[in-house]
Amino acid sequence: MTQFQRFLAKRLAISVLLTLVAVSVIFVVLRLLPGSPFEALVTSGNLNQQQINEIRSMYGLNQPLWQQYVSYMGSILTFEFGYSILRSQPVWSVLEPRLVNTLILLVPALVTTAVLSSSLGMYVGWNRGSFLEKFSIISTTFLRSTPVFITGIFFIIVFAYNLELVPAFGMRSVTASPEGYAETFLSVDFAYHYVLPFTVAVLYYSGDFLLLARNGVVEKRGSEFLKLHRAKGLSEMQQLARAGRNSMLPILTYFALRLGMIFQGLILLEVVFGWPGIGRELVLAIQQQDYPLVQAAVFIMALAVIIANLAADVLYAYFDPTVSTNGSGSA
């Protein structure tokens, strides 16, 4: 076994363990806290005791806790998410379209911002002290520190309400009834609704990439190897390219981590813009105490982060020729 394989095996094992623990935590939070998912239904008077018992046994809630735990683990780890209590549909058929909606919004936004703001960050890091540097730092500091729903509200007020350029809410017009993903996402109507949340998401993510790239380049600028590159007669752009290449790794890893977080959606963004994504669905499910939906959604989110973490570690170990894969320095 090479050192890299060993490292990979260890990381994998840790990730699997983490998944198990995370899933258990979700179970504990959902089952042990007071309140029952059917209280809402009972108090609303829609069900009698008989029906409640039937439903309880259907969801296995009448079994002892440990049996519930075992069957829960068994089903959730095999991606059997069961039925949504309130929507009376398989959980997956509720979540799938929502997840797609979220990804279609955030993945392009993340990629765009990673490319644009990292490039900008490298550029301003190279031209340290310029007006552009100050300006970009202030604006991205504002954008990344302000909660995303507030930025969203500002944008809605300006672009949707006052300039009336784009709609403020939803993913498509009420009248539209497209069939299938292609028709949904390739329409002009969709693009109209897409612009605003997309822009806000791009701006919200931009700060970290910009600073990461800028700090990396600033740090490399004073380095000895760049001095040698300069002595070799490389042009400014060539030097910047080398400084940028040397700061790529943290940006790549950060990108992987962010990508994992995308499955959580930007909950607040989705709520403000009425985007039917997974984050907004989860808030609704929590409000309505729809257990199976909540646990499935949270599980998917946790799993995505764990996988992204793993990917980031492996990326780092794989792409950095100098990093040693056994954790500490080489012996």
Binding site: V294, V298, A302
Partner: peptide, 8 residues
């Protein structure tokens, strides 16, 4: 890190 903050 893996447990999503807002939903939890």
């Amino acid at each position: 890190f893996s447990l999503p903050f807002m939903p939890m």
